[in-house]
């Protein structure tokens, strides 16, 4: 069992999600990956579900459930969000651009 609820380091993208519903992607600003952004997963009603910090290469990853999700990123340089629909187990990729 994982030790806690804290966000694990955001590593390289998963290619095989097994039976997990994975929502992952990168945060960028003007096409350049942004590390250290606070990335939150909001459910279909806009409710906060989870938050991670993007890796130096801008990567983030959530283990979600099937449904519609919003991924919202907050960074010193600005904010942005994107929608993703996760139909079932597998990797669902979404890119988020932040701007002031």
């Amino acid at each position: 069992m994982s030790g806690g609820c804290a966000a694990p380091e955001q590593g390289a993208p998963l290619t095989d999600a097994g039976d997990q519903v994975v929502v992952q992607g990168t945060v960028s600003a003007q096409g350049t990956p942004v590390g250290g952004a606070f990335v939150r997963l909001l459910d279909g009603s806009g409710e906060f579900t989870a938050e991670v910090v993007s890796s130096p290469r801008g990567d983030f990853r959530f283990f979600a459930a099937p449904g519609s999700w919003t991924v919202r990123a907050l960074h010193r340089s600005g904010s942005g969000q994107a929608e993703v629909s996760a139909s079932g187990p597998g990797v669902h990729t979404v890119e988020v651009a932040v701007s002031a």
Binding site: T49, V52, R61, F62, A64
Partner: peptide
């Protein structure tokens, strides 16, 4: 916890593998 954990849909926060 988040609504999905409360309802029983998820067992852990959504940034962690589902185990608990």
């Amino acid at each position: 916890r988040s609504p999905d954990e409360f309802s029983g849909k998820l067992l852990a926060p959504a940034h962690l593998p589902q185990e608990a």
